[in-house]
Design a protein around this nucleic acid. Structure first.
Lengths: 261, 261
DNA sequence: CGTGCTGTTGAGGACGATCAATGACGGTGG
DNA sequence: CCACCGTCATTGATCGTCCTCAACAGCACG
């Protein structure tokens, strides 16, 4: 199970753990307490989605932005050949449809789907318009969120097109581990099916399975049949040739953060 | 040769053809004449780069943004295995290092390289800071530019990981054709070497060559040995299963454009 | 207690990588 | 004007990775 199941969201708030969105914006260098509070207050709970269900489909949620509050989701597309391609994974705090806010309708075949049971929040675009209007740093921060998405896509591109399957899968796992740790989930459990991984890695499910078995043989992931649990992070990163710089804000804060009054 | 060689930039201005940056921002839905004029006036010519030379390397151009004025460039990375991965192609009007402006230093191995002879302009970050400060729509437009980059990356990801080589190369060619036409270059000539294509498609140069020969046999590209010229756009798009929606602003203008007073 | 979805295994075959060598072209300097 | 050199294009042969098809086992669900 995921650290953030829908059922414990209320508990989260009580215990005083940061709202996922607040944590996300913090990690992007946005620390305006006042604005954060207002923004978080404007996130309405839309409900929950079971695994496999589309969160953002074609044409719905006009005028609203979707925030993932708990669970794991992905932006995917069903290609004409019938295969599925997972483009981006979403974790709590991520906006699932920023592209719609800034750009346009994506192709009709593109959608966001829940990979585990998810809890969904919504924000009115109108509210966000106003917030960006009065606080330019918020706009820059969201721009930066998009830049992070692009950064992840570039990394994936390099690792999918050039590397053999073992490294592809390992790299994907590393990305998930890091992103989960960034939101406070330290366990090595990755709540994705082999099929989800295959769709993201551009491999067949069969071959993905074989790669995972190899990783088990190497002692990198534990041997339980149904769930994927990384046992040896260092070895995994080594195999994947993983360098987390593309995921994290540099220690030398960007000028925008420095410019914070 | 390219429609925009460095040598005819001056001529461009005389004939009254749009500045590349103006055209780019227009295509992203930004039409504030006043702001555009000021921005363009603040683009200083940095000089030109011959094919193969790095335009944006590690650590230079602190405090400045790079705009491609003429030619074709690409964001690439030399992987540890020695292969090269082309992430993004840049065409006149594109900022080459927006990622640095918003995010941070990329990995040291990432750089921007001229693929043809290029003409380079620069803008002081400070100026852009001010411009975004006073004109919120400009910031949103640049955000949108990043979103377009991400959109292209997603499309590439799908086509690189799932499709056979013929479609990969075809799709890449289609992308170039469309982007070139968007900046006013209608010829079917694509000024890239087979090696450039291979690095972008994640294929070996040898196999890329064979694919191009197949395309010649199919009558899709012309048979001249040294340059790649697309002879049959429709057929190419068909092979590539190309859908240009991911590249273009929708006809139904985004709310931002509508909101333009 | 079936019905799906997920995970697992085997065998055969296609696609693309790799290695190696040659040809063609453009630019440079004598 | 010619000789030279580096980059790019081309060809053939071999080999490895990964796909495809097919079947079955296990677990979770109603």
């Amino acid at each position: 199970m995921d650290g953030y199941s829908p059922s414990n969201m209320a508990a989260l708030a009580d215990v005083g753990v940061s709202h996922p969105l607040r944590r996300k914006l913090n990690s992007l260098g946005f620390h305006d307490e006042n604005e954060l509070r207002r923004l978080v207050d404007n996130v309405k709970l839309r409900g929950s989605s079971p695994r496999g269900k589309d969160i953002v489909g074609a044409g719905n949620t006009r005028g609203q932005l979707t925030v993932l509050l708990a669970g794991v989701a992905c932006l995917y597309e069903t290609l004409k050949s019938g295969e599925r391609q997972n483009y981006t994974f979403y974790y709590p705090g991520d906006f699932c449809d920023l592209h719609r806010y800034v750009w346009s309708e994506p192709a009709a075949e593109t959608a966001v789907r829940a990979l585990t049971n998810c809890s969904i929040g919504i924000v009115e675009c109108r509210y966000l318009d106003e917030a960006i209007e009065r606080n330019r740093k918020l706009g820059l921060t969201l721009w930066r969120a998009t830049m992070l998405e692009a950064s992840i896509l570039r990394e994936r591109l390099a690792n999918m097109s050039q590397r053999p399957a073992l490294q592809r899968v390992s790299h994907l796992l590393c990305e998930q581990l890091h992103r989960r740790r960034a939101i406070g989930i330290d366990s090595g459990i990755i709540p994705l099916t082999q099929i989800d991984l295959a769709d993201a890695a551009g491999l067949s499910a069969v071959h993905t399975n074989r790669v995972l078995q190899d990783l088990r043989t190497l002692g990198v992931i534990s041997a339980s049949g149904r769930k994927i649990e990384v046992a040896n992070w260092a070895r995994l990163a080594e195999i994947a040739n993983f360098d987390d710089r593309y995921l994290t804000m540099p220690a030398t804060l960007s000028k925008w953060e420095v410019r914070t009054e």
